[in-house]
Design a protein around this nucleic acid. Sequence first.
DNA 1: AGATAATATATAAACACATTATATAAAGGA
DNA 2: TCCTTTATATAATGTGTTTATATATTATCT
Lengths: 116, 116
Amino acid sequence: MTNSGEYIRGFTDYIVLSILSKFDSYGYEMTRIIEFVSENNIQLTEATLYIALKRLLNDEMITSYTGKNKKGMSRRYYQITPKGKKAIRNFRKEWVMIENTISSLVDGNFEYYRES
Amino acid sequence: MTNSGEYIRGFTDYIVLSILSKFDSYGYEMTRIIEFVSENNIQLTEATLYIALKRLLNDEMITSYTGKNKKGMSRRYYQITPKGKKAIRNFRKEWVMIENTISSLVDGNFEYYRES
DNA sequence: AGATAATATATAAACACATTATATAAAGGA
DNA sequence: TCCTTTATATAATGTGTTTATATATTATCT
């Protein structure tokens, strides 16, 4: 385990979809959001994010359009599609199960009947 | 995301260490435990587990010894080392942070001040 | 004026871990 | 006899992350 990003592997795409289900956003802002929410504990590198965005575009989970910030610098905004909305809805249910399972396993809060 | 195992990537080693912090165990039993705790929702393939065990042995997080089941079939038991105990202790604290972060992001339960 | 930091996007090479497939072997049940 | 369960292990392949690097505009500091 070299970097914190390894922990959210498998969740990256859903984190992006979740952010985009709140509002249209762009790469740079999304990395800031993840930094902010994790209190700097988890950081998604730019490379990871942009590759994820490419993957999501390819899978038709998101679309994109260009815009500008107030200073005139160009930004590429991403927008979630109905397919993406469905995917994040389904994943939210799955996450409850995943969270409970990993918590039980990692905390050791389980009873397992062992045969001798 | 092809398989449920992708979700626990990054956590596999700690799941193994957590199980071994309760009792010495062996590969086959550990896959059963993970199946049982996750109610068959998550399954760690044999390959993934045995590679993880090799990695943990190499990192001196665990040691192994041979034993037999009641029918005489041989088993390879694994035991956690002090280094492994320290690692799982530290990870348990980290997991709380990871869990909260992923939950907030995936559920969209966060406020982020956006500059226009 | 020049350097640096912040804003913004993007790709190539290397690395790590998981999946799929496969091999082996002994014991028990249909 | 065949199939299932118990039990361990590896090779080839696949997927996603990290590290490193490139580019460009605007703002701030010295």
